[in-house]
């Protein structure tokens, strides 16, 4: 089994509107998969279909290598937190967890205590959930998703409403669970910088379409610092660069080359190009943030 979860042209249509359009996601065991997209991009709908809360209009998904009805037999291995946490407001955190433990057949002693500790709610006692802050409810939602030791946890905007310290704590918790228990996470968020701190893989979704899937390394490479060189002859320029011992470069288009090493040697590069008769139209050091990358990919700031 190469992938823990793959979707095959997963589509959800409401009337004439395709909220999710032929999405193919690939998630390996142990990944922290960040699903990036603006509000209304289709993130929640994808997660709902993966979690079994919504039926796809077209397409299907494979879970643990199984598809169709067989895949649905493995749904109990998925923990979910979709949109706002669903909790009984007149019950305590422990009682809410107890209900899910009963439903899932979890009989192990101290499970509830451990889960509350995992999400940092061990000191809430019998306080009713209706008196919780948004962040506390969010943590309880995560704890509910972790009941019965799922292999895959689907978290939709899990850091919404959390303060910076809470965000850091949740991040640490998820990374710890990923590392220690090998739990695979799918996390949707529009807070890109935060997602970039924990995700190992990314899927960028826009208007229901999955634009790109990439690993953390690929994304970092795309967003890393580089020299952007514009010349009138890229072929000759490449020969000059290689002559200088520069091998980490990429020809982007007919006039642009991105260079990823010797970022402080802009002057030497220009000189070498000039000596070889290559005209430098422009040379700048660029550092694209994840957000800029996302905006460029999805069509700019007007879409956000």
């Amino acid at each position: 089994m190469e992938y823990l979860l793959t979707t095959n042209r997963l589509t959800k249509q409401y009337g004439r509107h395709k909220a999710v359009n032929a999405v193919n996601i690939h998630i390996r065991q142990g990944d922290i998969y960040g699903l990036i997209g603006r509000n209304g991009a289709g993130k929640t709908t994808i997660l709902k279909m993966i979690s079994g809360l919504a039926a796809p209009t077209e397409g299907d998904f494979s879970l643990f290598g199984k598809t169709g009805k067989e895949a649905y037999e493995y749904m109990s291995r998925i923990g979910t937190l979709i949109e706002s946490p669903g909790v009984y407001p007149n019950m305590s955190a422990a009682e809410n967890l107890k209900l899910k433990c009963l439903a899932m057949g979890v009989r192990k002693k101290d499970t509830i205590k451990e889960l509350l500790k995992t999400v940092g709610l061990e000191n809430v006692g019998k306080k009713k959930v209706k008196n919780f802050s948004l962040g506390m409810k969010q943590r309880l939602g995560i704890a509910l998703a972790l009941v019965a030791d799922p292999d895959l946890v689907v978290l939709d905007e899990p850091i919404n409403g959390l303060d910076p310290q809470g965000i850091a704590e949740v991040r640490e918790t998820l990374q710890k669970l990923n590392k220690e228990k090998n739990i695979t996470f799918i996390i949707s968020s529009h807070i890109l910088e935060e997602l970039s701190k924990m995700a190992t893989n990314y899927g960028i979704i826009h208007d229901g379409v999955l634009l790109q899937e990439m690993t953390r390394e690929e994304l970092l490479a795309k967003c890393s610092e580089r020299i952007e060189l514009k010349t009138d002859d890229t072929r000759k320029a490449c020969t000059v660069l290689e002559g200088m011992g520069i091998n980490q470069y990429k020809v982007v288009d007919a006039s642009t080359i991105q260079i990823f090493e010797r970022l402080n040697d802009g002057g030497d590069i220009t000189m070498a190009l000039a000596e070889n008769g290559v005209k430098t139209m422009g040379i700048t050091v660029k550092n694209e943030a994840l957000e800029d990358y996302y905006l460029n990919l999805t069509g700019g700031a007007e879409n956000v």
């Binding site: 979690s51 079994g52 809360l53 009805k69 649905y72 037999e73 749904m75 109990s76 998925i78 923990g79 979910t80 979709i82 949109e83 669903g86 899910k100 439903a103 899932m104 509910l144 998703a145 019965a148």
Partner: peptide, 8 residues
């Protein structure tokens, strides 16, 4: 939402 998906 916490339980429905886990019960086919």
């Amino acid at each position: 939402k916490n339980i429905a998906g886990q019960f086919p």
